[in-house]
Design a protein around this nucleic acid. Structure first.
Lengths: 195, 195, 195, 195
DNA sequence: AATGAATGAGTTTTCATTCAT
DNA sequence: TATGAATGAAAACTCATTCAT
């Protein structure tokens, strides 16, 4: 299996670094190969083509991202706690890895339509996690009962995503982690039962 | 002034059409020229380069977009009404022009970093409009007093933008306009004073 | 129409020269472009791709070849005269243009299957000319009446083609034109009525 | 001696199969290795390089081809019989092995100039056999006395070769063996004494 | 102002060959 | 002997931009 061999991860990590530093269009395959310390042709032993590198980068990194988020969420009892945890994890994980944040928020979105479709596939499980929290919250009674799940999910994801993107475009110059409580509160306010 | 000559708008409108139909990477200058009924070289009498066409497309179209939004907002009294109107206008204007929606939500985002920066410049006045509504709402007392303006603005814009993008990626197959009241309510819930 | 513009023929003639001198695989598009005195990209204004250059070279040159042959044949009365003229024209035309002979006898045959099919299409009218002479000869009574046309045509073409190829592979060092009478006689002997 | 080891013939036979099925340019070394059931690197223990495989294929197969032809010819008395036998053997041997026919008539000719030169070396003994039959025939009196040996040999080889090539290009769809008597007669007519 | 033919820089990908195991 | 992962050179083609008319 290819993903067990060390060069596989060498290449993926090099790709994240190179794309973050040079932008999507400035990241020639030869540049990634050099950064990974392999020959140009070696790339093609592990990846079908250049686009495949990008999809795989997203799959691998997003996979870990989602896994860690789920692990953390499972330790929480209420939907409110879970949602707050998801928001916190989302922001913390991207805050702690500037390169990855640049790639996911800016560079990967410059890809063509087909690649975007594939990226959305990878994202789907994450969106499902959000959906489930919303449903749970409505059942528990912590959230309002009249929520339309897809709309709320789009609000949650759209808000957090926009905030991370803004932060990246401002060159990560301010502290995003400190704003997590405010962001959580803002989102939760819109969907929690008013007592 | 260039924008008075007829070919200027011919080219811009052709660009929107061509990009919506062929995607960002399938929109060669020669294709836009052909669609506009002018020679390739003529493009360069009106625009500095290809990027300039794209920025201008966004400026012109977004300019109208913002203008119409402001006009409509000025007829409203309270910040709550104004914000609801902004959300409504945002969705209605993009809902009624699929080509433009495809270009703004999908294709233009595939551009390089520099173009994205310029696009953000164009968006700034719109974001300022949102900021002002928020401030007004806090002063009036309609909104909570402890809001952090940039955060709230990012929530509002992020939510609406995400919803339009989702709609476009689902090929505009469902009715987004019908969801405006729910979206407004969701957003306003998070920021209004609880009585 | 592309074939009226001067660069079209510049490129075709350069291609013949370059291929004859460097061989099929040594003839990069950039080399042909340089020899033609045009930019690499210009090639693609006139030809769909590299293979298209080769097919066109063959079409243009073979077209003239066949035309001249037919013109000359039309001045002869009997099938025997016509066939002798065809053999003479075939050898004379290739003998007088070493570059073209190298390309048709050696280099063009190194092409892939698809190109070979196309080349055969171009050759078809020539083979038909031969077929018609054979039929005429049988009707006139100059040739034996029991000839199988395709077989005889393959003998004629195979013999002449092999002789030109041998001559090219020996680097055109001996006089092929001087052997025309012997070649003609050899071929005619096999197919003429014995008195 | 390399040719005693089993993998040597495995590789050669695999090469014929792979080239016949995939064409000259579709026959990568790795594909031949796989078909032969050996590792890529193993190929280079038996052959200097890719070209060497091809030359060897031709040498081995043509060697057998010529050997069998000579064996058969030795059983004939007159030059006329010998020539008829050679023509018959040539066509029968290629007719009975489509893969080999495809390789010798089509694919191997797509090779570069150097390989073609080497292939001609391999063919030389065969051409000498033809030459000797012609000389014998002239001495015996069966053939005309004024024949120019190289010319006649080129006619014989050119004719038969062209016929086999035509048959292969028509995908071996008609019966070539049935035409052997006609072909022989056609050729012999041109060179035999007229009584 | 308008044209459109010409330019040429720039990049992904393939595949014969090597060599450490 | 045999392996097969790794190498890296090499080339067709696109398309934004120019400039002579």
């Amino acid at each position: 299996m290819k993903s067990n061999r060390p060069k596989y991860h060498q290449i993926i990590d090099a790709a994240v670094r190179v794309i973050a530093e040079n932008g999507y269009h400035g990241s020639q395959v030869s540049k990634i190969a050099k950064a990974a310390g392999v020959a140009d042709g070696t790339i093609y032993l592990y990846f079908k083509n250049k686009e495949d590198i990008l999809v795989t980068v997203f799959q691998e990194k997003m996979g870990q991202f989602i896994e860690r988020t789920i692990d953390e969420i499972n330790n929480r009892k209420t939907a409110i706690d879970k949602l707050a945890t998801l928001i916190e994890m989302h922001i913390k994980q991207l805050s702690s890895n500037h390169h990855l944040a640049i790639v996911t928020q800016l560079e990967l979105r410059q890809s063509n339509y087909d690649l975007r479709i594939q990226i959305n596939q990878v994202l789907k499980p994450y969106l499902t996690v959000i959906d489930n929290i919303i449903k749970e919250g409505m059942e528990e009674g912590g959230f309002r009962e009249d929520l339309k799940v897809p709309l709320v999910r789009q609000m949650i994801f759209g808000t957090v995503d926009e905030m991370v993107t803004n932060w990246v475009m401002k060159e990560c110059k301010y502290d995003l982690i400190g704003e997590i409580p405010l962001i959580s509160e803002l989102i939760l306010n819109g969907i929690c039962q008013k007592e």
